[in-house]
Amino acid sequence: MNTVLSDKKAICFFVIPTILIYIAVIFLPIVMSINYSMLKWDGIGKGTFIGFGNYIELFSDSRFLNSVVHSFLFAFVSIFIQLPISLLFALILANGVKGEKFFRTVYFIPVIMSTVVIGQLWSKIYNADYGLLNTFLKAIGLGSLARDWLGREDTALIASFIPILWQYVGYHMLIMYSGAKSISADIYEAAKIDGASAIKTAFKITIPLMKPVLKVSVMFSLIGSLKVFDLIYVLTKGGPFFSTEVPSTYMYTIIFDSYRYGYGSAIAVFIVVECLVLTVLFDKLIKV
């Protein structure tokens, strides 16, 4: 058996096409970015080699360090608030309720909407003058809480997280749902015969069996948070006063507004390395 499963030729056959595409689209650009990150370069003329100068600057750039903190905060919120919500819905739906299919379909809708739509929608929800949120607060007598959610440093960060968290609940739910559904029905039967309650079944049987899928979800969520860009850029452009800036929005500004291709590439390399290190750590720490 083992000889069949470690057939070198077959392994090559299965993996090489993927590796080839990877070399062209992922590795080569990363290598080129590492090269750029050693340059002082405006992306136009010739760059000058400055070694690790950009990296040294990076770690004393408070705007950059803050953006990293924001992305970690976001990863934390995603993993500990968004994923449990997704898991709850996945379990309820996988457990079989009336309209399972309907709910599963509807919960996924925000994921398929384009960022432009989600961005426009939430900027209307948050709008200080006529936004739904402030209108609602005033209607229930909490008018004093109404504020310019995206325009204030103290609320902008959390206000820009919420739409992303909300949008991707359905994404993780679908992964977890198919994970839960792929658990053999026999196991549930057995649990039922033993008289286990639904909650007990979930914690003792379903969730442990879903570990590989949950691990994937956490990994997606972690990496997704560390390189989040789209919605933050649409909603706040990293403002006001960099209070919602994350590494990738900062990188975009540096490369395309400040013409600092070298420094921007250093941020890009940082993001890749950061994700890689955390993924490996996560993989080593949590064995499934």
Binding site: I19, A24, I26, P29, S33, G43, K227, S248
Partner: peptide, 24 residues
């Protein structure tokens, strides 16, 4: 190792990959 390297694709911020990829 291959698995982790493949996951690398998720980690590349696309705006930085734009120029290298354009050249490729």
């Amino acid at each position: 190792t291959t698995y982790i390297l493949i996951a690398l694709g998720m980690m590349v911020p696309i705006h930085a990959a734009l120029l290298p990829l354009f050249i490729v």
